[in-house]
Design a protein around this nucleic acid. Structure first.
Ligand SMILES: [Mn+2]
Ligand SMILES: [Mn+2]
Ligand SMILES: [Zn+2]
Ligand SMILES: [Zn+2]
Lengths: 138, 138
DNA sequence: CTGTTAAATGCAATCTACTTGCATGTAAGG
DNA sequence: CCTTACATGCAAGTAGATTGCATTTAACAG
Protein backbone atom coordinates (compact mmCIF):
# COMPACT_ATOMS: atom_id res chain seq x y z
CA UNK A 1 0.00 0.00 0.00
CA UNK A 2 1.47 3.28 -1.16
CA UNK A 3 1.69 6.08 1.40
CA UNK A 4 0.40 8.48 -1.25
CA UNK A 5 -2.81 6.50 -1.53
CA UNK A 6 -3.41 6.39 2.20
CA UNK A 7 -2.92 10.13 2.24
CA UNK A 8 -5.41 10.75 -0.56
CA UNK A 9 -7.98 8.66 1.24
CA UNK A 10 -7.53 10.53 4.48
CA UNK A 11 -7.73 13.86 2.67
CA UNK A 12 -11.10 12.75 1.34
CA UNK A 13 -12.32 11.76 4.82
CA UNK A 14 -12.18 8.10 3.91
CA UNK A 15 -11.06 5.20 6.07
CA UNK A 16 -8.39 2.73 5.09
CA UNK A 17 -10.38 -0.47 5.41
CA UNK A 18 -9.55 -4.11 4.87
CA UNK A 19 -11.75 -4.10 1.74
CA UNK A 20 -10.04 -1.06 0.26
CA UNK A 21 -6.55 -2.37 0.83
CA UNK A 22 -7.53 -5.61 -0.86
CA UNK A 23 -9.24 -3.92 -3.82
CA UNK A 24 -6.25 -1.68 -4.43
CA UNK A 25 -3.93 -4.68 -4.14
CA UNK A 26 -5.90 -6.52 -6.82
CA UNK A 27 -5.82 -3.50 -9.09
CA UNK A 28 -2.11 -2.97 -8.56
CA UNK A 29 -1.16 -6.47 -9.50
CA UNK A 30 -3.07 -6.12 -12.80
CA UNK A 31 -1.33 -4.09 -15.46
CA UNK A 32 -4.42 -3.87 -17.63
CA UNK A 33 -7.86 -2.49 -16.79
CA UNK A 34 -10.19 -5.15 -15.31
CA UNK A 35 -13.94 -5.42 -14.80
CA UNK A 36 -15.75 -5.19 -11.48
CA UNK A 37 -16.38 -8.92 -11.65
CA UNK A 38 -12.66 -9.52 -12.17
CA UNK A 39 -11.78 -7.35 -9.19
CA UNK A 40 -14.24 -9.33 -7.13
CA UNK A 41 -12.87 -12.66 -8.36
CA UNK A 42 -9.39 -11.44 -7.44
CA UNK A 43 -10.57 -10.76 -3.90
CA UNK A 44 -12.09 -14.19 -3.57
CA UNK A 45 -8.91 -15.82 -4.82
CA UNK A 46 -6.89 -13.83 -2.28
CA UNK A 47 -9.22 -15.18 0.42
CA UNK A 48 -10.41 -11.69 1.19
CA UNK A 49 -14.15 -11.93 1.15
CA UNK A 50 -15.70 -8.63 0.15
CA UNK A 51 -19.23 -8.23 -1.08
CA UNK A 52 -19.67 -7.29 -4.73
CA UNK A 53 -21.60 -4.18 -3.75
CA UNK A 54 -18.64 -3.03 -1.68
CA UNK A 55 -16.45 -3.40 -4.74
CA UNK A 56 -18.83 -1.21 -6.72
CA UNK A 57 -19.00 1.42 -4.00
CA UNK A 58 -15.27 1.54 -3.54
CA UNK A 59 -14.39 1.69 -7.21
CA UNK A 60 -16.78 4.62 -7.60
CA UNK A 61 -15.22 6.35 -4.61
CA UNK A 62 -11.64 5.68 -5.72
CA UNK A 63 -12.53 7.07 -9.11
CA UNK A 64 -13.91 10.27 -7.56
CA UNK A 65 -10.68 10.70 -5.61
CA UNK A 66 -8.77 10.21 -8.84
CA UNK A 67 -6.94 7.13 -7.57
CA UNK A 68 -8.53 4.82 -10.08
CA UNK A 69 -9.34 5.28 -13.73
CA UNK A 70 -12.45 3.95 -15.49
CA UNK A 71 -11.99 2.72 -19.04
CA UNK A 72 -14.91 1.95 -21.35
CA UNK A 73 -14.48 -0.31 -24.36
CA UNK A 74 -17.97 -0.96 -25.75
CA UNK A 75 -18.57 -4.09 -23.74
CA UNK A 76 -21.50 -2.79 -21.73
CA UNK A 77 -19.41 -2.41 -18.61
CA UNK A 78 -16.48 -0.38 -17.34
CA UNK A 79 -12.97 -1.56 -16.57
CA UNK A 80 -10.73 -0.09 -13.86
CA UNK A 81 -7.02 0.51 -13.45
CA UNK A 82 -4.93 2.26 -10.78
CA UNK A 83 -3.64 5.70 -11.61
CA UNK A 84 -0.85 6.07 -9.07
CA UNK A 85 2.64 5.70 -10.48
CA UNK A 86 1.47 5.17 -14.04
CA UNK A 87 1.58 7.78 -16.79
CA UNK A 88 -1.56 8.92 -18.58
CA UNK A 89 -2.08 6.59 -21.52
CA UNK A 90 -4.61 4.82 -23.76
CA UNK A 91 -5.56 1.32 -24.90
CA UNK A 92 -6.32 -0.91 -27.82
CA UNK A 93 -8.68 -3.89 -27.72
CA UNK A 94 -9.00 -6.75 -30.19
CA UNK A 95 -12.50 -7.16 -31.64
CA UNK A 96 -11.91 -10.89 -31.90
CA UNK A 97 -10.58 -12.08 -28.55
CA UNK A 98 -10.98 -8.95 -26.44
CA UNK A 99 -7.28 -8.72 -25.66
CA UNK A 100 -6.21 -5.31 -24.37
CA UNK A 101 -2.84 -3.58 -24.66
CA UNK A 102 -1.62 -0.40 -23.05
CA UNK A 103 -0.59 2.32 -25.47
CA UNK A 104 1.82 4.48 -23.56
CA UNK A 105 1.10 7.64 -25.49
CA UNK A 106 -1.33 10.53 -25.77
CA UNK A 107 -1.67 12.78 -28.79
CA UNK A 108 -4.25 15.11 -27.35
CA UNK A 109 -2.55 17.89 -25.46
CA UNK A 110 -2.50 20.47 -28.24
CA UNK A 111 -5.89 19.45 -29.51
CA UNK A 112 -7.39 19.94 -26.07
CA UNK A 113 -6.31 23.57 -26.09
CA UNK A 114 -7.88 24.06 -29.50
CA UNK A 115 -11.14 22.47 -28.38
CA UNK A 116 -11.27 24.68 -25.30
CA UNK A 117 -10.95 27.74 -27.46
CA UNK A 118 -13.50 26.59 -30.01
CA UNK A 119 -16.17 25.30 -27.63
CA UNK A 120 -15.63 27.48 -24.52
CA UNK A 121 -15.80 24.24 -22.49
CA UNK A 122 -13.05 23.69 -19.97
CA UNK A 123 -11.81 20.24 -20.88
CA UNK A 124 -10.74 18.05 -17.97
CA UNK A 125 -10.51 14.62 -19.52
CA UNK A 126 -10.90 12.43 -22.56
CA UNK A 127 -11.45 8.82 -23.48
CA UNK A 128 -9.48 7.38 -26.37
CA UNK A 129 -9.52 3.69 -27.17
CA UNK A 130 -8.56 1.91 -30.35
CA UNK A 131 -10.17 -1.19 -31.78
CA UNK A 132 -8.93 -3.72 -34.26
CA UNK A 133 -7.71 -7.26 -34.74
CA UNK A 134 -4.72 -8.76 -32.99
CA UNK A 135 -2.25 -10.95 -34.91
CA UNK A 136 -3.91 -14.17 -33.67
CA UNK A 137 -7.44 -13.10 -34.61
CA UNK A 138 -6.62 -11.43 -37.91
CA UNK B 1 -35.18 8.60 -46.87
CA UNK B 2 -31.91 8.58 -48.73
CA UNK B 3 -31.61 6.26 -51.72
CA UNK B 4 -28.16 5.25 -50.51
CA UNK B 5 -29.64 3.92 -47.28
CA UNK B 6 -32.33 1.91 -49.03
CA UNK B 7 -29.60 0.44 -51.17
CA UNK B 8 -27.45 -0.56 -48.23
CA UNK B 9 -30.39 -2.25 -46.58
CA UNK B 10 -31.23 -4.22 -49.66
CA UNK B 11 -27.60 -5.22 -50.10
CA UNK B 12 -27.75 -6.68 -46.59
CA UNK B 13 -30.95 -8.62 -47.36
CA UNK B 14 -32.97 -6.29 -45.12
CA UNK B 15 -36.45 -4.94 -45.74
CA UNK B 16 -37.36 -1.30 -45.71
CA UNK B 17 -40.05 -1.38 -43.05
CA UNK B 18 -42.26 1.24 -41.48
CA UNK B 19 -40.24 0.95 -38.24
CA UNK B 20 -36.91 1.39 -39.97
CA UNK B 21 -37.99 4.43 -41.93
CA UNK B 22 -39.25 6.00 -38.74
CA UNK B 23 -36.12 5.17 -36.72
CA UNK B 24 -33.85 6.61 -39.41
CA UNK B 25 -36.06 9.69 -39.64
CA UNK B 26 -35.70 10.28 -35.89
CA UNK B 27 -31.93 9.86 -36.08
CA UNK B 28 -31.66 12.15 -39.08
CA UNK B 29 -33.49 14.99 -37.46
CA UNK B 30 -31.13 14.82 -34.48
CA UNK B 31 -27.70 16.30 -35.06
CA UNK B 32 -26.30 14.82 -31.88
CA UNK B 33 -26.11 11.18 -30.76
CA UNK B 34 -29.23 10.08 -28.82
CA UNK B 35 -30.04 7.18 -26.53
CA UNK B 36 -32.27 4.23 -27.40
CA UNK B 37 -34.91 5.65 -25.09
CA UNK B 38 -34.72 8.98 -26.92
CA UNK B 39 -35.12 7.28 -30.28
CA UNK B 40 -38.15 5.49 -28.92
CA UNK B 41 -39.61 8.69 -27.49
CA UNK B 42 -39.10 10.33 -30.88
CA UNK B 43 -41.12 7.56 -32.50
CA UNK B 44 -43.95 7.93 -30.03
CA UNK B 45 -44.04 11.68 -30.59
CA UNK B 46 -44.18 11.12 -34.35
CA UNK B 47 -47.21 8.86 -33.74
CA UNK B 48 -45.27 5.90 -35.09
CA UNK B 49 -45.68 3.21 -32.52
CA UNK B 50 -42.73 0.87 -32.53
CA UNK B 51 -41.84 -1.47 -29.70
CA UNK B 52 -38.67 -0.65 -27.77
CA UNK B 53 -37.25 -4.07 -28.59
CA UNK B 54 -37.62 -3.29 -32.28
CA UNK B 55 -35.62 -0.12 -31.75
CA UNK B 56 -32.84 -2.13 -30.10
CA UNK B 57 -32.81 -4.72 -32.86
CA UNK B 58 -32.78 -2.17 -35.62
CA UNK B 59 -30.10 0.01 -34.12
CA UNK B 60 -27.88 -3.04 -33.74
CA UNK B 61 -28.57 -4.02 -37.34
CA UNK B 62 -28.02 -0.51 -38.70
CA UNK B 63 -24.75 -0.37 -36.81
CA UNK B 64 -23.61 -3.66 -38.36
CA UNK B 65 -24.39 -2.29 -41.80
CA UNK B 66 -22.38 0.81 -40.94
CA UNK B 67 -25.34 3.14 -41.37
CA UNK B 68 -25.42 4.16 -37.74
CA UNK B 69 -22.65 4.93 -35.31
CA UNK B 70 -22.66 4.03 -31.60
CA UNK B 71 -21.09 6.54 -29.24
CA UNK B 72 -20.31 5.77 -25.61
CA UNK B 73 -19.85 8.53 -23.03
CA UNK B 74 -19.68 6.96 -19.60
CA UNK B 75 -23.36 7.03 -18.91
CA UNK B 76 -24.03 3.29 -18.76
CA UNK B 77 -25.70 3.29 -22.16
CA UNK B 78 -24.86 3.92 -25.78
CA UNK B 79 -25.96 6.79 -27.99
CA UNK B 80 -26.57 6.56 -31.72
CA UNK B 81 -26.14 8.89 -34.69
CA UNK B 82 -26.53 8.44 -38.44
CA UNK B 83 -23.37 8.08 -40.46
CA UNK B 84 -24.61 8.87 -43.94
CA UNK B 85 -23.64 12.29 -45.23
CA UNK B 86 -21.68 13.22 -42.14
CA UNK B 87 -17.91 13.22 -41.85
CA UNK B 88 -16.07 11.11 -39.27
CA UNK B 89 -15.82 13.19 -36.10
CA UNK B 90 -15.81 13.17 -32.30
CA UNK B 91 -17.68 14.69 -29.36
CA UNK B 92 -17.41 16.53 -26.10
CA UNK B 93 -19.82 16.16 -23.20
CA UNK B 94 -20.30 18.43 -20.20
CA UNK B 95 -19.85 16.69 -16.85
CA UNK B 96 -22.39 19.03 -15.33
CA UNK B 97 -25.44 19.08 -17.57
CA UNK B 98 -24.57 16.31 -20.03
CA UNK B 99 -24.68 18.61 -23.05
CA UNK B 100 -22.96 17.17 -26.11
CA UNK B 101 -21.29 18.99 -28.98
CA UNK B 102 -19.91 17.64 -32.23
CA UNK B 103 -16.21 18.18 -32.80
CA UNK B 104 -15.73 18.06 -36.52
CA UNK B 105 -12.17 16.84 -36.42
CA UNK B 106 -10.04 13.75 -36.01
CA UNK B 107 -6.36 13.81 -35.09
CA UNK B 108 -5.75 10.11 -35.30
CA UNK B 109 -4.83 9.13 -38.82
CA UNK B 110 -1.07 9.23 -38.44
CA UNK B 111 -1.19 7.80 -34.95
CA UNK B 112 -3.21 4.84 -36.18
CA UNK B 113 -0.41 3.90 -38.56
CA UNK B 114 2.11 4.12 -35.75
CA UNK B 115 -0.02 1.94 -33.47
CA UNK B 116 -0.43 -0.67 -36.19
CA UNK B 117 3.32 -0.87 -36.56
CA UNK B 118 3.99 -1.02 -32.85
CA UNK B 119 1.28 -3.49 -31.83
CA UNK B 120 0.86 -5.61 -35.00
CA UNK B 121 -2.89 -5.12 -34.58
CA UNK B 122 -4.81 -4.02 -37.64
CA UNK B 123 -6.70 -1.00 -36.34
CA UNK B 124 -10.20 -0.54 -37.74
CA UNK B 125 -11.73 2.01 -35.41
CA UNK B 126 -11.36 4.23 -32.39
CA UNK B 127 -13.47 6.00 -29.80
CA UNK B 128 -12.48 9.48 -28.76
CA UNK B 129 -14.67 11.61 -26.54
CA UNK B 130 -13.79 14.66 -24.50
CA UNK B 131 -15.23 15.62 -21.14
CA UNK B 132 -15.34 18.91 -19.33
CA UNK B 133 -17.55 21.75 -18.20
CA UNK B 134 -19.66 23.91 -20.48
CA UNK B 135 -19.84 27.69 -19.95
CA UNK B 136 -23.15 27.41 -18.05
CA UNK B 137 -21.95 24.69 -15.67
CA UNK B 138 -18.45 26.01 -15.09
C1' DC C 1 -6.68 0.79 26.34
C1' DT C 2 -11.54 2.17 26.08
C1' DG C 3 -15.54 4.56 24.57
C1' DT C 4 -17.65 7.23 20.95
C1' DT C 5 -19.01 8.08 16.44
C1' DA C 6 -19.04 8.64 11.61
C1' DA C 7 -17.95 5.87 7.94
C1' DA C 8 -18.11 1.36 5.78
C1' DT C 9 -20.04 -3.12 4.98
C1' DG C 10 -23.21 -7.09 3.91
C1' DC C 11 -27.43 -8.68 2.56
C1' DA C 12 -31.71 -8.37 0.19
C1' DA C 13 -34.40 -5.98 -2.71
C1' DT C 14 -34.71 -3.15 -6.61
C1' DC C 15 -33.63 -0.80 -10.98
C1' DT C 16 -32.23 -0.19 -15.68
C1' DA C 17 -30.32 -1.47 -19.99
C1' DC C 18 -30.54 -4.91 -22.87
C1' DT C 19 -31.61 -9.77 -24.85
C1' DT C 20 -34.22 -13.94 -26.11
C1' DG C 21 -38.13 -17.05 -27.56
C1' DC C 22 -41.94 -17.49 -30.00
C1' DA C 23 -46.33 -16.64 -32.25
C1' DT C 24 -48.06 -13.34 -35.57
C1' DG C 25 -47.62 -9.79 -39.17
C1' DT C 26 -45.77 -7.80 -43.37
C1' DA C 27 -42.46 -6.28 -47.27
C1' DA C 28 -40.90 -7.78 -51.51
C1' DG C 29 -40.62 -10.57 -55.55
C1' DG C 30 -42.74 -13.67 -58.72
C1' DC D 1 -52.71 -12.17 -55.59
C1' DC D 2 -49.50 -15.81 -53.33
C1' DT D 3 -45.52 -17.13 -51.12
C1' DT D 4 -42.00 -16.76 -47.94
C1' DA D 5 -38.22 -15.00 -45.56
C1' DC D 6 -37.66 -11.30 -42.77
C1' DA D 7 -39.52 -8.30 -39.13
C1' DT D 8 -42.33 -7.22 -35.19
C1' DG D 9 -44.73 -7.26 -30.61
C1' DC D 10 -45.31 -9.12 -26.34
C1' DA D 11 -43.68 -11.42 -22.34
C1' DA D 12 -40.12 -13.26 -19.90
C1' DG D 13 -35.36 -13.41 -18.74
C1' DT D 14 -30.38 -11.71 -17.89
C1' DA D 15 -26.67 -8.94 -16.29
C1' DG D 16 -24.70 -4.95 -14.45
C1' DA D 17 -25.36 -1.64 -11.21
C1' DT D 18 -27.85 0.83 -7.28
C1' DT D 19 -30.45 1.53 -2.89
C1' DG D 20 -32.19 0.95 2.01
C1' DC D 21 -31.17 -0.47 6.23
C1' DA D 22 -29.37 -2.97 10.17
C1' DT D 23 -24.79 -4.15 11.79
C1' DT D 24 -19.77 -3.68 12.02
C1' DT D 25 -15.47 -1.29 12.20
C1' DA D 26 -11.71 2.34 11.59
C1' DA D 27 -10.20 6.39 13.58
C1' DC D 28 -9.50 9.21 17.18
C1' DA D 29 -10.19 11.59 21.70
C1' DG D 30 -9.70 10.93 26.39
MN1 LIG E 1 -3.83 0.96 -18.97
MN1 LIG F 1 -21.81 13.49 -33.80
ZN1 LIG G 1 -4.83 11.08 -23.47
ZN1 LIG H 1 -11.38 9.78 -35.29
Amino acid sequence: MEAAIAKSLKAGGKKLTRARKAILAVLERNTLPITVAEVHAGLVKAKTDVDLVTVYRNLAMLQELGLVNAVGFQEGQMRYEVVHGRAHHHHIQCRGCGKILDLMLCPLKKLTKLIEEQTRFSVDGHALEFFGWCPQCR
